[in-house]
Design a protein around this nucleic acid. Sequence first.
DNA 1: GATTATAGCGCG
DNA 2: AAAGCGCGCTATAATC
Length: 567
Amino acid sequence: MLMVVAPARAGESADRGGPDRSTSRAGAQALVGEVPSGVAPRGVVGNEKAARWVWDDTGRWYPRLLADGVRVERCLDLRLAHRVLRGAAATAGSRLATAPSGPFDVAGVAEPEPDRVESLFDVAAPQSRPDEDALLAEIGAQDEAVADHPRLRLLLVAESAGALAAAEMRHTGLPWDRRVHDEVLAEQLGPRPSGDARPPRMAELAAQIRAELGAPRLNPDSLPDVLRELRRNGLPVTSTSKWELTGLDHPAVAPLLAYKKLSRLHSANGWAWLDRWVPEDRFRPEYVVGGVVTGRWGSSGGGALQLPKQIRRAVRADEGWCLVVADAAQLEPRVLAGLSHDERMAEAGRGRDLYQGMVDAGVVDSRDHAKVGMLGALYGGTTGQSAAVLPRINRAFPLAMAHVEAAARAGERGEVVSTLLGRSSPLPGAQWNQVQADALDDEAGASAQSRARAQTRAWGRFTRNFVVQGTAAEWALCWIAEVRRRLWALGESTVAGRAPEPFARRPHLVYFLHDELVVHAPQELAEVVATQVRDAATAAGRLLFGEFPIDFPVSLASARSYADAKD
DNA sequence: GATTATAGCGCG
DNA sequence: AAAGCGCGCTATAATC
């Protein structure tokens, strides 16, 4: 059964109590109810197991339900689904994809606005808030579009499940110990300075840099000035980047590198960050589901997907609880093996580290070579060590290599490529076509032609990686959906943590990073949670690759702090 | 003075 | 040896 959640019709009272109507348009039995101020429609809560909630935007509705302690088991996020279907090659001819842009094509992320403002907002932007009829029409159009595409249907459901998980993670927040974070900062930077003064350790390094470069007034934060002074001191650098500086023989180099490291910590995750993003020992970033072209999640606010290892000590479970940290090992190569049905590659990863398996099979002579070579294959590397190893990988895993090569060539031709479940790559932009056209002109010089060639290859590297990264993102969506479902099924513990309802006594997801996830769980449940997370990975592999024998092993550890579980 | 662009570095 | 994919964020430079 579908529960369609729509705003009230004009003139209808918000507190009438729904659901009040059932309809059978769109081939589905649908109940249409209003969700006033976070209260679930009457009748829905008791029936939540069977229902799939359908709404325009999970981020719009679900936070209010969670605030009332209501968890939704399944949903369909029409806005996310719409975006996938509008871009998918498989549905390009559908009514949905060929229609002019409508209320589901809203760019950007809808703000979860306070209830009181909603009517004002609707007046200001009626287009961006589909009404009940628009919702039902959209359901019909989507149903029609995916009628012959079961894998796309799976993608829509997985994406929607991801949206639920994302909202729940924001609701509970990542447990964070401000005191530990401050300790880390003080260890590295010295005590917190007042105002916007440089922290003590950075100030010392700045003085050292100035002395070694003979530049008493140099601001080490100014890249052009630093570059100029380095060159004045005879160093053959063209930038101030870390890799160019590393290894240079000059007494200013070490303090400069140390300064840059500390400066990064201070500006990106220092005290200002802590005060802004971690009030009351919980970090609540916004996860942007499908925010990356490939289907990976993005994030907004606080740099949630770039938490430096330095500060992960501050991620700490509540008293009596632990963090179960899971990492999918060599996810992208395994996904490629599955995509291309390369059994030899799958065999290399069976029951062991895939890179080690390549060494064991005599493909390469060290794990490091295996890794750098495989990354070169996935990203389109053409130089250095990875290029040197590529021929061996090509010989060992011809099906896998042919798969990414085909994706690269399609991109070079300006064509669209698609993931396993059917998410398609964007077409290159107008500027790309312009550069290509310029190169074909009779008057075109060598530089225009080489520019076009470089651009062609760059797009090929993008599409090459798209199919693998995008399918890996689909695996990860299935994994997180499966974990979420299994965790809830474990039921309540006797040990309450500080997470808000409905998760106070239940293990719950708190962090997700492409191929890694973190569960906050009562200590007593650590083992059973780990088992569920591992089994969920296997289930995700089955869902995507059926009986093809590719493993998805997960490294698992539990500890009080994220850092301890990672190392 | 307010904006947009760039370099650099963090993560996978 | 650090280059091949995808991001977000910050401080500074460049531009209006």
